[in-house]
Nucleic acid binder design. Structure first.
Lengths: 207, 207
DNA sequence: CCGGAAGTCAACCTTTCGGTTGATGCCCGG
DNA sequence: CCGGGCATCAACCGAAAGGTTGACTTCCGG
């Protein structure tokens, strides 16, 4: 019997997961959490085998942080991330936080059940779209933005001018422009708004 | 007895809605649709009282269009939009398409049930966040973008230059710039990327 | 019927951005 | 130990975007 904890801030999604998972004879949903903090609590007190974790909760602790705290304990449950979003930033953050798998919410119940069993057995489970994204990143490592470039692009997406960005990051405008030129080359665009659009499309910056 | 049709592309959400709504003695879920097209079909053949409609389906017909086709028929069911997003563009499109209510997916089951009963009785039901947004819009009508301005801003957000926009919309660059100046004034910004950021923040364009 | 908002366009000017070249220092890994 | 990616900066130039003024049309509502 696989003991499950559901962590999601939407009551409707929690009910849906409970209904879908209850159909499997070897699953038992032992608890639900509506926040990241509550998920960490219940992961300790209920000692489930697998936690189904949403990444975005309303206010309070994010799913990635909750995942980190849960997986930090030795012998703790596996965490299977289940979210709507498939941006690079989210995926990498979740995996880095120790998630065993990453599924999208549009998954079929059968796929979900299979992923839960994989996670319970310690095998990692990735949704096809997620796996493809990770492979794509490995195939073209040069196209990944550096930390500094991402930082600059975030401010560009916020609508700041080069001058404002240079002041914010304690740089000269020349450096900001230099970063931007590299960003444009990596994304295959030739102006800042197109860079923001491309980065959004590829999940390189947060929405 | 209120007969319900559930239209959502996520199996998990459909199960959740079914579970939550089945708890109400006077509700009966008569069908589920995983696409906009299927929702329109079933709205005719099953003749439900209320359709719970998601706005974003994967490929194919959008929820707004499905809503429009369903409500176009006299004596057809009421459509209660139930979505994750609360952008101005989505809300207005849904209401314009004939939706009776607009709920967010983080709603409590009790609120959802109440909204369904409201919709069945022909009373409109809006989530608090949605109602607030609409009121805010009424309070500051001057800040709303015109149809053409929104059209231009959408292309700006996609990363197009003024020249590309002018060709796409069969305008001169002067006209595009003219629209942009008005957009900047209404949004209180002074460049295109900031305009896109501000518009995203206020839900004026699709994410 | 008139005023105003929306939409279209032109000419002009200033500022910013984009693109290049070149240079320096750092740190990592082969 | 040395190449290469990353990060930093300077100077320059042409292109694009931003800002202003002014003008014309259409359409709607008071």
């Amino acid at each position: 019997m696989i003991r499950l904890l559901i962590a999601d801030d939407h009551p409707i999604v929690r009910s849906g997961l409970r209904a879908v998972l209850a159909a499997e004879p070897d699953f038992e949903v032992v608890g639900e959490a509506a926040s990241g903090e509550r998920a960490v609590e219940l992961a300790v007190t209920l000692a489930p085998d697998v936690v189904l974790m949403d990444l975005r909760f309303g206010p309070g602790m994010a799913g990635a942080q909750a995942t980190r705290e849960i997986t930090a304990r030795a012998g703790g449950p596996r965490v299977l991330v289940l979210t709507t979003y498939d941006s690079d930033a989210d995926i990498l953050a979740a995996i880095e936080a120790g998630a065993t798998g990453y599924l999208l919410k549009d998954a079929d119940p059968a796929d979900l059940a299979a992923a839960v069993r994989d996670a319970a057995a310690g095998r990692s489970a990735l949704a096809p779209a997620v796996a493809q994204r990770l492979l794509g990143r490995l195939r073209s490592p040069g196209s990944a933005l550096s930390r500094r470039e991402t930082e600059v692009l975030d401010l560009v997406a916020a609508g700041l001018s080069n001058q404002q960005i240079s002041k914010r990051l304690f740089l000269s405008q020349a450096t900001v422009k230099s970063h931007l030129v590299h960003i444009y080359a990596k994304l295959g665009v030739d102006n800042r708004t197109a860079a923001v659009a491309a980065a959004r499309e590829r999940g390189l910056i947060r929405p």
